[in-house]
Write a protein that binds this DNA or RNA. Structure first.
Lengths: 197, 197
DNA sequence: ACCTTATTGTACACAGGTGTACATTAATTG
DNA sequence: CAATTAATGTACACCTGTGTACAATAAGGT
């Protein structure tokens, strides 16, 4: 063992996540984090390696609290599309419930970092692609369940769903009324034939 | 008259617009702009008032080159929905043609600034709302033209279209193949019954 | 008690950025 | 050619931020 750590690492990650969520990764300085944790920048670099590594930890925590997490449980559901509908509805609720209207940390970060930050760009782009694959897996499962026609183009429908999800998360910064936002999304989900009560 | 200006203001705005487009408003410093223009920061403040005022000028120029500009001409078209389809298709083309995959400056700025920058937040939010109203006006006109049923909920459909547009602009940073992006959007437009060849 | 080890802190040497008060320069107009 | 005027530049007085080399501190195990 060595000297005891002065701060709670988990609490630190949550604080960092919320800071990035509110004002973006670029706006978060090592100086600010260090001061918040009551340590020097030198100690910060020792504990977290770099600002980028810290970002990845914060993003990892975000995945655990994201409304999208539920999507991966489609295999245990008896209606994948009902689950999908619920996740979209829950996302509308959570985004409009947020008094600060910060949208989605992941979508914000895609917008902020892809093509801008060399080391984080591919991570964020990859995240979007994995999400699209997740939608596609759910849709394929839904066909298997008999909810969707076998002729369904799961790839393009998955892309359409990802597009809708990204849209809603950014829209939620402007459209702050839950019903209005959900109605807009509902219109799309119904039209795409993936809406289930 | 007084002393002659050292730089071309129009060229300056275009350069600034592209800088913000590439790496965001926050990343653009008065220092960098001044150096680019070959003047001092002091002269910059004299010429542009503030960084925020400069942003508004750059954004104003962006509106003039945005693929969305065409949308406002729906009254001169014999099919508002064909125009709508073309604008979405053209947006997909322009976004994927951009070798830097910068997406849409306006959508990027909504994501970056709404809820973050006190003086620019409302401007960007207002821009989105005006866009939604623009979509609604086009849809109303389309009903008038007999292309859409009178029972169409233009408000929610307009919100759905805005959602789709914002989605595609962010998606274009990750999905850089024109056909793939356009196919995803096409799926939504067809489903929403607003797609016309 | 002492050694190991993990964490902490100090100090340096920068680079980048802000906004303003005041002075200077150069075109046009009379 | 002088006055006006609108641009320009100089200089100040800051604040924020980066990353690293080196040293000090404190907890646990032997």
């Amino acid at each position: 063992m060595g000297r005891a750590i002065k701060f709670d690492r988990d609490e630190a990650i949550v604080w960092v996540m919320n800071e990035i969520w509110r004002s973006g990764f670029t706006a978060l300085s090592v100086k600010a984090v260090s001061e918040k944790l009551g340590i020097t920048r030198s100690s910060f670099y020792h504990a977290f390696e770099s600002r980028e590594a810290l970002f990845l930890e914060a993003m990892n925590h975000y995945f655990q609290i994201s409304p999208l997490l539920k999507l991966s449980t489609f295999a245990e559901s008896n209606s994948a599309l009902t689950l999908l509908t619920q996740v979209f509805k829950e996302t509308c609720k959570q985004r409009t419930d947020d008094g600060q209207h910060r949208g989605c940390l992941a979508v914000n970060s895609v917008s902020e970092l892809v093509g801008v930050n060399d080391s984080l760009s591919s991570f964020m782009a990859n995240m979007v692609n994995e999400n699209i694959n997740g939608f596609e897996a759910l849709l394929t499962y839904s066909i298997h369940q008999g909810e969707l026609a076998k002729s369904t183009d799961t790839r393009h429908l998955a892309l359409a769903l990802q597009n809708t999800l990204i849209g809603l998360n950014t829209m939620s910064k402007v459209i702050t009324n839950e019903q209005e936002l959900w109605n807009a999304i509902k219109v799309i989900l119904i039209a795409l034939n993936v809406y289930r009560e």
